[in-house]
Nucleic acid binder design. Structure first.
Length: 506
RNA sequence: GCGCCCAUCGUCUAUCGGUUAGGACUCCAGGUUUUCAUCCUGGCAAGAGGGGUUCGACUCCCCUUGGGCGUGCCA
């Protein structure tokens, strides 16, 4: 019988939409489309603490911008909905109950303190880190009673003590992992929400996903997933683990070392076509060793056998070259339209006009006055930035604090931005004006510019964070930056001074 | 530490036992262009090391080395 191909991408809505999500989505969509199947978007918001609706919206926006549209998803529905895991909790509850009844899972009452202590001794004795099965042998009746009494607990997967799990990886063939190295994974957290492992398996089955193409970071938890399929009596999908995108230093792509937000790439003026083309070159080469291609071309000959397993380094330099190629390929009128759709649209220009108007003496002042807001990287004078902080080294530290503050700021608006600066000024005991002096230079390259908070709101969080990063880089290159040691110290300081005494600032 | 994955120019990759190991980005040189950019031409640059298997290994196997990921009530 012909099986309809269904793939999915399942990002969690925490933070900015990640370039790695686009990479995984691209391969899943290309594979599904090649086989005339469906590509599904599922939001994995089972982490109640970190998931935000803003982030979810940003994911929609980012993937749509790239043209990676989905056939079924939270915003457009579909026959296997809902597509947001937080709306499927009853489903998970129901399924995990079956597991507890059948003995494939058990309730665990261990406190996080006990778990922490356990880990400590395991580390000290150089033993394998993992749950010791303390609650695995609990009598089911007793456990039910404790639950009824309201005792906090989680539900764990009961993994085999011996034997070997064979994972059929589409790219690597059979991978063998000994069961003794697989932990009794938590399936349901104390808050009643499922963990990724449970929700993922239940959803992939219920949504009739046939091929799970995901990052290779998941290989080691594949045994747990396979065990779940078996426990439910379901046939597992085909598993295909793509190599991870890397930083230039070969580590897993991270925002500390690279811009990872898709929205950054949009604002920095990359074209979706270029980004898709470049991403399609990561770990992959289409038929005929083709280098420049669009999504449809990729789909036409898409073949998982052409995936290369070495972890590709995401090289912005090459992306830029590709982007330049696509810009040149545009008709002039189309480029103009693209430019207008980018940041030269009335709505965004109007905001700049409002900021500039009180400061304008000639119309000719407008473009020079606002130019720095359209750039990605602007020329910076690290010595000037450092001096603006009065004591050398202060500027770099303040920038770091502001980076952390911005990263955890909720709504990106002028008040929120101001509060961040206020907090830093207060905690560091520095005059607000002096502190801002540093940041005018960081963002505009000058001591005087448009009103800072409004300008940053206009710039957007991703670009703002990027600018902060550029400033740190410039300072470091000039020998005025933070050493690794200093950074560690600041981190501790930040945790103590900023995170622990929340709420006392207005 | 333990488990797993990976390994061709600096980077992305082609090669599916026999090639002068090819292309792209970067860099360098030359040409076109009032400058610059574009564009064109050329150049630098690679099979981690050691064992096997084979008439023959970048290609298959093993070991070593290197890198990565995992080891969360995160995904």
């Amino acid at each position: 019988m012909f099986m309809r191909v269904r793939t999915r991408v399942a990002p969690s809505p925490t933070g900015a939409p990640h370039i790695g999500t686009a990479y995984i989505a691209l391969f899943n969509r290309a594979f599904a489309k090649h086989h005339g199947g469906q590509f599904i978007l599922r939001i994995e918001d089972t982490d109640q603490v970190r998931s935000t609706p803003e982030s979810e919206t940003a994911i929609f926006e980012a993937l749509r911008w790239l043209g990676l549209d989905w056939d079924e998803g939270p915003d457009i529905g579909g026959s296997c909905g809902p597509y947001r895991q937080s709306e499927r909790t009853a489903l998970y509850r129901e399924h995990v109950d079956r597991l507890v009844t059948s003995g494939h899972a058990y309730r665990c009452f261990c406190t996080s303190e006990r778990l922490a202590a356990l880990r400590l001794t395991q580390e000290a004795n150089q033993e394998r880190i993992g749950y010791d099965g303390h609650c695995a042998g609990l009598d089911a009746g007793d456990a039910a009673q404790r639950v009824a009494a309201g005792e906090a607990h989680v539900i764990r997967l009961r993994t085999p003590q011996e034997g070997v799990c064979q994972i059929a990886d589409r790219f690597r063939g059979t991978i063998e992992i000994a069961w003794e190295t697989v932990d009794d994974q938590i399936l349901v957290k104390a808050d009643g929400f499922p963990t990724y492992h449970l929700a993922n398996v239940v959803d992939d089955h219920l949504m009739e996903i046939t091929h799970v193409i995901r990052g290779e970071e998941w290989i080691s938890s594949a045994p747990k997933h396979l065990l779940l399929y078996e426990a439910f009596g379901w046939e597992p999908p085909v598993l295909a683990h793509l190599p991870l995108l890397r930083n230039p230093d070969k580590s897993k792509l991270s925002k500390r070392k690279n811009p990872t937000s898709i929205l950054y790439y949009r604002q920095a003026g990359f074209l979706p076509k270029a980004l898709i083309n470049y991403l399609g070159l990561m770990a992959y080469r289409p038929e005929g060793d083709l280098e420049m291609f669009d999504f449809d071309t990729m789909v036409a000959s898409f073949d998982l056998d052409r995936v290369h397993l070495g972890g590709p380094i995401f090289d912005i330099q090459k992306l830029r070259a590709f982007n330049g190629h696509y810009i040149r390929e545009l008709e002039d009128v189309d480029l103009l339209a693209t430019l207008k759709g980018w940041l030269l649209q009335d709505a965004s220009l109007l905001e700049l006009v409002r900021m500039a108007q009180p400061r304008l003496e000639q119309l000719a002042d407008f473009v020079p006055m606002t130019a720095y807001l359209f750039a990605d990287q602007i020329p910076l004078d690290p010595a000037d930035i450092d001096q603006a902080g009065k004591d050398s080294g202060k500027a770099a530290a303040w920038i770091q604090f502001v980076q952390w503050e911005f990263a955890r700021l909720g709504d990106w608006d002028a008040d929120g931005v101001r509060d961040c600066f206020n907090r830093v000024a207060e905690r560091e005991g520095v005059k607000f004006k002096l502190l801002l002096g540093v940041f005018f230079r960081v963002f505009s390259g000058r001591a005087v510019a448009l009103p800072l908070f409004e300008a940053l709101v206009w710039l957007g969080r991703d670009m703002t964070l990027r600018r902060l990063h550029y400033a740190q880089e410039a300072l470091r290159e000039a020998g005025l930056g933070l050493s690794g040691k200093a950074l560690k110290r600041l981190e501790k300081w930040y945790q103590e001074r900023y995170l622990r005494e929340g709420g006392e600032d207005g």
